[in-house]
């Protein structure tokens, strides 16, 4: 087996990566196009005025605010629940452990539409009206797994002797958690939290079932994609959404890259 890749393999791998990334470049290009009515390529001219137009749009700001609020609260809930689950499942073996870990992964393993329609039917049966909290409920449910994955990997690599040492030195369980376990977990929780934020901020499939008449930023975008009103503004928002999701993903990667459990390998 030769140590160097054949030209054909390099070509196919390179082409594959290009296929994954080139389309996003066009989104950025189109945000500067002067063409309003079609997706004409190459764009007839370039302008930055759509960024100013988008900035003035109240409906975009409202959708953005809602998305950020939902993502923050869903992330906070997922951080608490995911860390607790990780603490329980990382080392201790007990009856039903496998079933619980499956339960945590399920909301993201089943197609989003199943999660969405399930929540929708539950709200219908229980007569719960759509509200801010119905969106949060759905988002927190599928964000738990992201925090859990990051925290559990870190906990498994943390030596139990650290905890024993802390207890031997007279700290109680709460002090040990506060001063030993939590600092150890910090970066993995930060990474998990950022990925959860990115996931929630961008979620559209479950949200369409739990939002009712409310408009999050992805729902605003979806409406524009199906019935375009002002295409250039949509392009600007798309660039913005791309940037907002890229930053936490990159940050999560750099926070955990020196460790064996790099964040994001499992979605």
């Amino acid at each position: 087996m030769s140590e160097r890749a054949s030209f054909l393999l390099k070509l196919m791998a390179g082409a594959g990566l290009l296929f994954l990334h080139l389309p996003l470049a066009f989104i950025v290009l189109y945000a500067f196009s002067t063409e309003e009515k079609s997706y004409q390529f190459p764009p007839p001219g370039y302008t930055t005025r759509w960024f100013a137009v988008a900035w003035e749009r109240q409906d975009i700001w409202a959708a953005l605010t809602l998305s950020v609020q939902v993502a923050l609260i869903a992330t906070a809930l997922a951080l608490v629940l995911g860390t607790l689950a990780a603490g329980a499942l990382a080392r201790t073996r007990f009856f039903g452990r496998e079933a619980i870990s499956l339960l945590i992964v399920l909301p993201i393993a089943l197609p989003g539409i199943v999660t969405g329609i399930s929540l929708r039917s539950a709200f219908a049966i229980a007569d719960i009206p759509f509200s801010f909290w119905t969106i949060v409920l759905g988002h927190a449910t599928f964000c738990i797994v992201v925090v859990y994955n990051n925290a559990v990997a870190r906990l498994r690599r943390t030596s139990p002797s650290l905890i024993e040492a802390s207890m031997d030195l007279g700290a109680d369980s709460f002090q040990t958690f506060r001063h030993v376990v939590l600092p150890n977990l910090a970066t993995s929780l930060l990474a998990g939290g950022m990925l959860a934020f990115a996931l929630s901020f961008d979620e559209v499939i479950v949200t369409t079932f739990t939002a009712g008449q409310q408009t999050t930023l992805p729902i605003w975008m979806l409406t524009e994609l199906i019935r375009p009103r002002q295409r250039p503004v949509t392009n600007v928002v798309a660039v913005f959404v791309m940037a907002v999701t890229f930053i936490p993903i990159l940050a999560a990667y750099y926070l955990t890259r020196d460790t064996a459990d790099v964040a994001g390998s499992g979605k």
């Binding site: 990566l17 989104i27 990925l195 992805p218 798309a238 959404v241 791309m242 999701t245 994001g264 390998s265």
Partner: peptide, 19 residues
């Protein structure tokens, strides 16, 4: 390069192909 598209905006990625 493999992970970024996995996590980045689903809608934007669909939209790119519409263009």
């Amino acid at each position: 390069l493999i992970m970024l598209p996995l996590w980045s905006s689903y809608l934007v990625r669909v939209y790119a192909w519409k263009l």
